[in-house]
């Protein structure tokens, strides 16, 4: 009895020594990443909130505490309202178009008998790997009203004289077109992976039951593709709400971006400009939290609306 208890105590001790050893190694492996995450993301987010409660300026260095006044100002500032509206318009316009087109392309490409499939996949993926700054400059000139290729192409159909980036109506849609062009390949590759995860037997069974192509898509492919659709919508919407580079490169006139009558002023540019061009870091931080809240709310809404259990057995 006594020996058994002793043996038990020893194994327990050994076990816990082993456990302690494991935990120490775990913390050792974890520490670089955790330290930097703490210093570079977790602390800054608290600091950002602290900054947003001040009227923070770098030159001259002074930052009086003003409570929630920056947040109250966001509701009254017409430029903020305009930036929010542009950002939402851009997202609501670009994301559904990109998703619909990329899904159609993925469905076409998912046919095994199609020739040159991998060749096409490569072609559609090239804009994805191309730098945003580079493609923004390319499209900036493609949209040139007089000699740009877009207007010369439209000329074949008798459409003339759209000023694109110089027009308050067309500047933002032009940027949306570029975003769709650039993101198409990425969404398509993910849709393709999702489509290939759907068991072939399901479609064969449906075919035997007399389902046509449309029914097969609507009742089998689409519901089973739901996780992929959710993933792409959520990431695409988050990315779109954070659009910055093309809006800045394509519509900067004399050092100030935002396009004709601020028609392409998006939230991230508004934050950047407020904080670093106009030296109002406190208000900029408050605007960043407004953007963060917008992203959170929109994402949660999407998850609520689109997440449903699909089980086909």
């Amino acid at each position: 009895m006594a020996t058994a208890a002793k043996a038990f105590a020893i194994t327990r001790q050994r076990w816990s020594r082993q456990q302690r050893r494991e935990a120490l190694w775990a913390y050792a492996f974890l520490s670089p990443a955790f330290f930097f995450l703490l210093a570079l993301i977790m602390f800054p987010i608290l600091f950002a909130f602290w900054i947003s409660l001040h009227d923070w300026s770098l030159i001259p260095r002074h930052f009086p505490f003003i409570g929630l006044q920056n947040y109250l100002e966001t509701l009254r500032d017409p430029l903020t309202i305009k930036s929010l509206r542009n950002t939402l318009f851009y997202t609501v316009g670009a994301v559904p178009v990109s998703m619909a087109v990329s899904l159609i392309l993925a469905l076409i490409m998912n046919q095994e008998k199609l020739p040159f499939r991998t060749w096409f996949r490569t072609a559609y993926f090239i804009p994805v790997i191309t730098s945003w700054v580079a493609v923004s400059f390319v499209w900036l000139w493609l949209f040139e009203p007089r000699w740009g290729l877009v207007n010369s192409f439209l000329g074949w159909f008798g459409i003339t004289g759209i000023k694109w980036l110089a027009s308050p109506v067309w500047a933002l849609p032009a940027i949306m077109l570029v975003a769709v062009w650039k993101g198409l390949g990425y969404n398509m590759v993910i849709f393709l992976a999702g489509l290939q995860g759907i068991p072939r037997e399901m479609h064969e069974a449906a075919k035997i039951d007399g389902a046509n192509r449309w029914q097969s898509f609507w009742f089998i492919t689409f519901p089973l593709l739901n996780p992929t659709v959710v993933f792409i919508t959520v990431t695409a919407v988050i990315g779109s709400l954070q659009v910055f580079t093309p809006a800045v490169i394509m519509t900067t006139v004399q050092g100030e971006a935002g396009g004709p009558i601020n028609s392409t002023r998006v939230m991230v540019y508004h934050i950047y400009s407020t904080a670093f061009r106009y030296n109002r870091l406190g208000y900029g931080a408050a605007l960043a939290f407004v953007l963060f809240a917008l992203i959170l709310v929109v994402t949660l809404m999407q998850l609520r609306l689109t997440q449903r259990e699909v089980e086909y057995t």
Binding site: L40, I41, F43, P44, I45, F47, A48, I51, L58, I238, Q242, M267, V268, I271, Y272, A275, F276, L281, G284, A285, A288, F289, L291, F292, I295
Partner: peptide
Amino acid sequence: IPFQVIMIPLFI
């Protein structure tokens, strides 16, 4: 957390 939220404190 979007980068835009932490870029201002990171700069400081």
